[in-house]
Structure formats: structure tokens, C-alpha cells
């Protein structure tokens, strides 16, 4: 019997195909950025869900610290890995969008810079997880490091903003038209469904590994038959 997350995953795949088709061929060119503006439909949902997936990791971390239940740790583990994948994609997309609009692949823009720092912090958490055998230590350390990394994101953003800020074109509500909002929402939905599948699958892997690590239960007592 297929698990529930496969329904979300399949719907997500279909929605992503539809959303990308609409973004590439149906949506009008953006007023300032022209066809390059079509990157909006991939870049912004990825950015929002990278943050949101790290929020899930944060919830998992808090859940573990409050309840000590391993399920919360598996959620933390799953969401951090998915979040790192999203964060890498986010930075690459930002770079691809930056080249035609800013003329450079990279600038020390606050959002770009803090997203990079965010990636480094969560990669650090993954490496920390690998640095111990004990499941309890791993869960506690990871939860603590996740909370600190998460809280640090807005602080980093603020500091980089003060440090150096370049003026950039932002999509203000006036430049976003009706059809653009629709296409954007389709892509957001696709992302939500796909992230559900990613996190759920990764959670099952974490659970399976934890079960394999745990000492095997005693075999059932032999039935005595007369």
C-alpha cells in the first residue's frame, strides 16, 4: 500500500510541471525584467520554502528539547538536510538571476550573504550530527545547534544590511500583475507538496536508521506445545 506522502509527492510533481509551464510560456514578461523575470516563479518559492523548511527543523529541535522524543529529532534531521538542498539551489538561482539583472554573478547583498551564512551554519549542524555515535548526544547537540543557527539568521541579515547594502530592483506589489500572482501561487503549492514528500521520505530514512542502530529486541519465547 502506498504511503500518504506519495500522494503529496505525485501531486507536487504534477503541480510543478504545470507551474513551470505557466511560468515559462503563459505568464507575461515582467515589466522591468522582461523574460528574465520568469525566474521569479522558481527563485522566490525556493527562497520562501528554504526558510520554511528550516522553520520545520527548528520546530523539530524545540520538540526534541521539550519532549526528548526521537521522532522530533528525526524531523530535525530530515528538515535540515532538505533545507540545505533548498539553500544550495536558492544560492545558485540567485546567482543565475543576478547575472542578467545586476550584471554580476555575486554581490554582497544582505539577502544573498545571509543565505550563504545560513547554509554554512546548517552544514555545520549536519557535520556535528556525524561526529558522534550516541543517538541522545546527537539529538541534543543537533537541537541546540539548530536553535542557535535559526535565531542567528535575522541577526546576520541585519548586520550584513548595515555592513553593505546595494540598491536592487524588488518586485513591489504594483509591478506584480494578476496572472503573475496566479502562476506564483501554483508554484508555491508545488513547492509545498514536494517539500512534504522530501521531508516525509527523509524522516522515514532517519527512523529506519535509528531502528537499525537500536539493540535488537529479544526473540519471542518459543511456544511450548504439548
Amino acid at each position: 500500500m502506498p504511503k500518504w506522502e506519495h500522494i503529496a509527492g505525485l501531486l507536487g510533481l504534477i503541480t510543478l510541471i504545470v507551474g513551470h509551464y505557466l511560468g515559462l510560456f503563459w505568464a507575461p514578461p515582467e515589466r522591468m525584467m522582461g523574460d528574465v523575470g520568469r525566474l521569479f516563479y522558481v527563485h522566490v518559492p525556493v527562497a520562501m520554502f528554504a526558510m520554511l523548511v528550516f522553520c520545520v527543523a527548528f520546530v523539530g529541535a524545540l520538540g526534541y528539547l521539550l519532549t526528548s522524543r526521537m521522532e522530533a529529532d528525526w524531523l530535525n534531521e530530515a528538515a535540515i538536510e532538505v533545507g540545505v538542498v533548498m539553500n544550495v539551489l536558492l544560492l545558485m538561482l540567485g546567482s543565475i538571476w543576478g547575472k542578467p539583472t545586476w550584471g554580476v554573478w555575486w554581490t554582497w547583498d544582505p539577502r544573498l550573504t545571509s543565505a550563504t551564512v545560513m547554509l554554512l551554519t546548517f552544514v555545520g549542524v549536519i557535520l556535528l550530527r556525524q561526529a558522534t555515535q550516541s543517538p541522545e548526544k546527537r539529538a541534543t547537540w543537533s537541537a541546540v545547534a539548530t536553535v542557535l543557527a535559526f535565531v542567528n539568521v535575522p541577526v546576520t541579515y541585519m548586520s550584513v544590511k548595515w555592513w553593505r547594502s546595494i540598491h536592487q530592483m524588488q518586485s513591489t506589489p504594483e509591478t506584480v500583475s494578476e496572472p503573475m500572482v496566479f502562476v506564483f501561487r501554483v508554484n508555491l503549492l508545488a513547492m509545498a507538496l514536494l517539500m512534504t514528500w522530501f521531508i516525509a521520505r527523509r524522516w522515514r530514512i532517519a527512523k529506519h536508521r535509528a531502528m537499525a542502530e537500536a539493540p535488537a529486541p529479544l526473540p519471542p519465547a518459543p511456544q511450548v506445545t504439548s
Binding site: 513551470h20 528574465v36 544550495v88 539551489l89 543565475i96 539583472t101
Partner: peptide, 27 residues
Amino acid sequence: PLLAQGTGMIQGGWEFVWAGYGLTWLI
């Protein structure tokens, strides 16, 4: 920057759009 050319709207740049969408599918 492509913005520097002409109308105030960036012209072309489809290769970046394809790269972005393609990369998303790849990852």
C-alpha cells in the same frame, strides 16, 4: 547589465531562465 539596453525592460536573457528552471529540476 541587459537593463542598460534600450526600453528599460531587460531584453532576452532566456538562457538564464532555462538555466534556472533546468537547475531546479536537476537538483
